[in-house]
Design a protein around this nucleic acid. Sequence first.
DNA 1: GCGTATCGCGTTTTT
DNA 2: CGCGATACGC
Length: 735
Amino acid sequence: MRCVKVAAMKNDRHSHSPATSGERPYLQELNESQYDAVTTTEGPVLVIAGAGSGKTRTLVYRVAHLVEKGVPPEAILLLTFTRKSSQEMLWRSGRLLNENCNRVVGGTFHSVANMLLRRYGSRIGFGSSFTIIDRADAEGIINLLRSSLGLGKKDKRFPSKRAVINMISGSINRSIRLDDLVEDQYAHLSDHLDDILALHKHYQVFKYDHGLMDYDDLLVNWKRLLEEAPEVRQTISERFSHIMVDEYQDTNLIQADIIRLAAHTHDNVMVVGDDSQSIYSFRGADFYNIMRFPKVFKETRIIKLEENYRSTQPILSLTNDIITNAAEKYTKTLFTRIEGGLRPMVFAGRDEREEAAFIVDTIRILLAKGIELQEIAVLFRSSFHSYKLEMELGSESIEYEKRGGLKLTESAHMKDMIGFLRVLVNPQDTLSWNRSLLQLEKVGPATAQKISAAIAGSVDPLEALRTYRPAKAWQESFGRLVQLYADLYHAEPKPSILYEIALAYYQPLFERIYSDDYPKRQKDLDQLKSIMEGYDDLQSFIDDTTLDPPEEAEKDGHRLERLILSTIHSSKGLEFDAVFVIGVADGRFPHASAMFGEQWEEERRLLYVAATRARKYLYLTYPRQLMTPDRQFRRVGMSPFLSELSPGLYERVSERPAAEQEPFADYADKTPKTSKKKREKKLEMADFSVGCKVSHPFFGHGTVAKLTKGRSLDVHFDRHGLKTLHLDYAKLKID
DNA sequence: GCGTATCGCGTTTTT
DNA sequence: CGCGATACGC
């Protein structure tokens, strides 16, 4: 058994030359299965890895190991679910032993597709000047087409633009015909089938005419490139001698085909995945890819990672129970050696407010226990489920960072700014022309479309713009716009310079358009500026912001001390000391429309993913009543996924925590105290006086301003201002 | 016909 | 919050 403790390994590092065949000592940190995966350098490997089983570590070590064994770093292709995770992995590989690891090609399927298509796209008839569009752009096009084709006017039953995009995307990702998909999955919309098909056709033509490519096109064209250009297929396959794919259960058929084609000369493919964590089927992800893998690649080596290094046993018992109820599964029971720990808690609030209050109270207790704020996460099914909590956090001045939902670059003001620059790279980009025209006063959709059509139809867009005859009402502002583009076209094409020019023009419009809240949005523009300063090349800036939208700013590489609020989908692959899963109510989780079969099972896996993010503390909460659309309150029970769990696996909490009763005492603490942990002296009002310096686990340092009656006191905190605190609640210390 | 202001409603999940 | 529907004014 190869399970040497890390500490022991460190001591051994210099003392003895490894008896085991001159291996690098770092390999001894791995367990037997991980070791197998890391050291298998040739041939297809399938790693079935449970939650928290050291999957990332295995990938990181394997990259380092391959480089160590002489594989050129640029011949390794590491495909991950998000760009961030690949960067993180390569960085860690480099740290491990070999700095060359940063030359490994890493990224998402989409970013690699983009790179290859820019380089080889001409072989299948693509110029290199395409613009990548995100989902908001795609919806915009559908909207445009829907009105210009006059489809579904005033028909409330006509599918929304989002639904249309989802259908189109779904048919591509599942490699089935659109009409079959509508018939199977959207039977209630079959009346509109012809219109949907027409929208689809025009959408494809529109993109082609305007040099636009959506996320699906990137994959489809990458596959085409490999299939239709044999010499490119050969080149790519030889260039990447080793391919690794993370989160393989989230790949769709197209991606599986891409892997097979790209590896055809060597079959050196390692994929890592967990069928229990498959939560992206709406995007065409198909966990049968995992089961198919050994059939596609003969002589696949299958390795299972079943030891969990993340969670305590009580948490693991609960999560195992969640997934045991799955109708279809590939048996894999995780175990851990982490001892002790609390049973997960289930709390039912009277309403969403009380649910939020419970979370805030509990967070304070966790902070007092020494858990750091950024190690706590609140997870939910849909991004609007956290609205009430966000309000509560705001009034309690707990800082948070929200993930999931709208991306920074999907907000209107960011799209405006980026739009000015997008047309420089791709003058056919009607969407962006439209945006800048709509910003003008007295110009609406109809006029904007007329002008942008004239631009797109011409050879010289700038000339077309200049010669367009504006109406008197908006002549002046139009003139300024023309001047802006003239300046942009003639300026040095450096992102930071272009930004300054565009902002100088945009700022006054910006303040008028968002007159109610522009100071908030201004911060985003500032952030955009600092991002652009990191680029020399406009094209790659635009590609990157579309493929990998920037999140909120990080400070000096340190994670900020902020609570994480996240959709469960966006929390994938992360872990936290404490996790709250909120809104685990009937009708909310599972999502109301997921009533049958595989969809129901996917919702269950979603809860599994959420719960397995927790290391030490897990709370599942739900409100007992929810607001219905007609302003009525409806009583709801707990999610069926909760009620089917064995009640012994969790503890029910019925009241909000108060400091006197200690409902949060560790089980370990209840056993006779062997630890010499000093119990802190409980402070009384008499211990405080006005002007005395105190500190608080969250608010930091401050000065007592006033002692009020009861057990409250006002404290002026250096960083958070004046707060009224209750002595029993706030874990105050005297400095 | 076109642009603009305003109100009220509903919100899956995303590379 | 973003979007659609609606009404009003040019």
